[in-house]
Nucleic acid binder design. Structure first.
Length: 304
RNA sequence: GGGGAAUUACCAGAGUGGCCAAAUGGGGCAGACUGUAAAUCUGCUGACUUACGUCUUCGGUGGUUCGAAUCCAUCAUUCCCCA
């Protein structure tokens, strides 16, 4: 499995939403004459533009971006698929480039590219909906008890109050006939390219202000109209996304537009916080303020 | 000018003599997280303390009481109704 090391390098710009990754990464990619892979799990969807703050058309024209608008919200896409697609893309990009940038804030997807993610057989959607149905009807207790028998190892360490975790483990057990934990090897994969992780962060208060301002801008730029178009698909998982969910509640008459905007800001702030908590665990990340462009360039050049 | 209602921790808001450092929700903070992860879940949130616990809080002041966020007096502020 171990591949020969090359002099190729993936430079990852990591940071919470709204911190200023896009502008900086475009300048960096320009300086390094290379391209950008998005690691943002909502920019994948071609129906989502304003609410996911994808780069502007001018920016996209200047620097080629990958993994933006590659799927439909009706498609199924996950971190494992992303891993394979990105590795594949890197393989071809590294034919002509020595460096490639990856920019985004979806921690699990970034980790999937850096370390790989265990391959677990696909689950039949019908099985999943059946289980969801059961959880809705009988609650979580029964499923939990069954999972305890099917996969005691997972059960012992799992967050059993989290229905999503229980559901996932259960569906894999039922689909494969093997315990979910038997697939979770968690052995990091070796990559044949170097990885540099640059983290961007700024004072919490300022970050929150930027988020609030950006939401107002999104509204001005037509987020309400964009969400209106998607309202009919509101059950889709890909649309359980900050900026859309809240507006759906507005369209449904549950909350006012003002309240929806307020909630978008709030939920985005909470999301940014969770991103930071995820990234904090990763000791390979070197942190900078987005203004420290010179230092960042220096750091990259020293570590390439 | 007369009558009524209110004032509780960051915010909203419950509590009407001891079980109240004060419900609940929100926010905030901290954290978990291998698959649609911008999701989902957990803990903390007066001060000091690792903890046991101690101390200071419920608009201000003064009182009643063994004991007050809760009762009384008074002052202040806000809102509503009548002039």
């Amino acid at each position: 499995m171990e591949e020969k090391k090359t002099n190729k390098c993936l430079i990852i710009i990591i940071g919470p939403t709204g911190v200023g990754k896009t502008d900086l990464s475009i300048r960096l990619a320009n300086d390094f004459s290379t391209e950008i892979i998005s690691s943002d799990s909502r920019q994948f969807y071609k129906e989502l533009t304003i609410g996911t703050a994808i780069p502007t058309p001018e920016q996209l024209l200047k620097i080629p971006h990958h993994f933006i608008h590659i799927r439909s919200i009706t498609d199924y896409y996950n971190a494992c698929m992303y891993e394979f697609d990105v590795i594949d893309k890197l393989h071809s990009l590294f034919q002509s480039k020595d460096f490639v940038f990856m920019v985004g804030g979806s921690g699990m997807y970034i980790d999937a590219v850096c370390k790989g993610i265990d391959e677990i057989p696909d689950v039949d959607m019908k099985l999943r909906s059946m289980l969801i149905e059961r959880i809705n009807n009988e609650g979580l207790d029964n499923i939990r008890a069954e999972l305890k028998i099917l996969d005691p190892e997972f059960y012992a360490t799992a967050d059993i109050r989290n229905s999503q975790r229980i559901l996932r483990a259960m569906e894999v057990c039922l689909q494969t006939g093997k315990p979910f934990s038997s697939f979770r090897l968690k052995t990091p994969k070796k990559r044949n390219f170097k990885i540099i992780k640059v983290g961007l962060n700024r004072e919490r208060e300022i970050l929150y202000e930027r988020i609030n301002q950006r939401v107002d801008e999104m509204i001005k730029n037509g987020l309400v109209e964009e969400a209106k178009e998607l309202h009919k698909h509101k059950g889709l998982y890909a649309l359980k996304t900050v900026g859309y969910n809240e507006l759906f509640d507005f369209f449904d008459g549950i909350i006012s537009l003002e309240r929806a905007i307020e909630l978008i800001k709030q939920n985005t702030r909470n999301y940014a916080r969770r991103q930071l908590i995820w990234f904090r665990r990763d000791k390979e990340i070197h942190w900078f303020h987005p203004n420290q462009e010179e230092e960042i360039t220096k750091y990259i050049n020293q570590n390439i």
